[in-house]
């Protein structure tokens, strides 16, 4: 094997370094750091959706609502009920896991478009509850004064850079989990389901259980991101549970690359950047964004990561002949361009 630098690893390293040094590069620019932190939180949620949609091939439109449930759990518990952030955050994670599990039991009885419609209805139901159940959720007044994470020893989370690194930790965890899944039998089962449910069955994949686990895990990750969002933002309103959130996550995934490891990060950061650039245009920014999306769909149907992977020389896409340990230079175990 050649020991020339693998462009895939180089790409991952560049993104990782950029993310790590961002607070230094943006020092004195609090606002921009906050934009990047928010984008990172959305990226975590996109990783959640990526598990059920990107890997397993099931279009869930409830994930914006799961994000919102996580956000409201942290928001309400740390304000009206005066819980600490940490216990509320744990409750958000456990709560969205249970919610994901229970709704998965019902939603996954449906397939294809019916699954999409069912989950959209579920998301809408959650949105309606937030808007109507005023005595608990404060409806349109929203929840303000959501707590920052309490200090751990000398670590002060009101410091923007600290909060950023805290979020980054979860983002790295989500990306790594996706990578590990893709290189495991569990992930192979999911991708098998995405490609052909019949063939997946014929090799012994328990389709129902695999989908249930994927849906639950993806709800957990979305809910976790919601919890972080509430704390960072300090304020949340019903719009953080709406279908718009779901469509944003979809946009990040489509632009970055469905079912890939780096797609969610790249997509979220890029769209956040574009939104900032086009901020003055307000709602007209979609006039610019629209054509960009159309061009992407035409020229990079597998998203940016898919497009970049095609440029990677073949020798890096092919598997080594020797048994490969971690950080291999090889392509994903499941899809042609799943490795990044």
């Amino acid at each position: 094997m050649t020991n020339r630098l693998n462009p895939r690893l180089l790409g991952v390293a560049l993104i990782a370094i950029a993310l790590l040094v961002a607070p230094f590069a943006l020092s004195g620019q609090q606002y921009l750091l906050r934009v990047v932190t928010t984008a990172a939180i959305y990226a975590i949620a996109a990783y959640g959706l990526n598990i059920i949609l990107g890997l397993t091939g099931q279009l869930s439109l409830a994930h914006g609502a799961f994000f919102g449930v996580g956000a409201y759990t942290v928001g309400l518990l740390t304000t009206d009920y005066d819980w600490s952030f940490w216990t509320a955050f744990l409750a958000a994670i456990v709560g969205t896991t249970v919610l994901g599990y229970v709704s998965g039991l019902i939603a996954l009885r449906t397939q294809g478009a019916y699954f999409a419609i069912f989950t959209m209805a579920l998301g809408f139901l959650i949105f309606i509850i937030v808007v109507r159940w005023e005595s608990v959720t404060h409806a349109h007044s929203g929840v303000s004064g959501v707590k920052f994470p309490e200090n751990i020893g000398p670590i002060d989370f009101t410091e923007p850079a600290t909060m950023y690194y805290f979020v980054l930790l979860f983002l790295a965890g989500a990306a790594y989990t996706t990578h590990a899944l893709l290189h495991s039998n569990a992930g192979r089962s999911l991708v098998a389901i995405r490609t052909s449910e019949d063939l997946a069955k014929s090799i012994g994949v328990n389709v129902a259980v695999s989908k249930q686990l994927a849906f639950t895990a993806s709800a957990t990750i979305a809910g976790l991101a919601g919890g972080l969002f509430a704390s960072l933002n300090g304020f949340i309103g019903p719009d953080s549970t709406g279908i718009d959130r779901t469509f944003e996550m979809l946009l990040f995934l489509l632009i970055g690359g469905l079912g890939t490891v780096m797609g969610p990060i790249l997509g979220s950061l890029l769209v956040a950047f574009l939104f900032e650039m086009l901020q003055d245009l307000e709602t007209y920014r979609f006039i610019v964004l629209g054509p960009i999306i159309v061009l992407l769909v035409i020229f990079a149907p597998r998203g940016l990561i898919g497009y970049l992977n095609e440029l990677v020389p073949a020798r890096f896409r092919h598997r080594d002949t020797t048994p490969e340990p971690v950080a291999s230079t090889t392509v994903s175990d499941t899809t042609k361009d799943g490795a990044l």
Partner: peptide, 16 residues
């Protein structure tokens, strides 16, 4: 599994 390599296809048979 059309968009997977030959080896990955056979690896999928090991899941069980």
């Amino acid at each position: 599994f059309d968009d997977a390599t030959v080896l990955d296809n056979v690896l999928a048979g090991r899941v069980v």
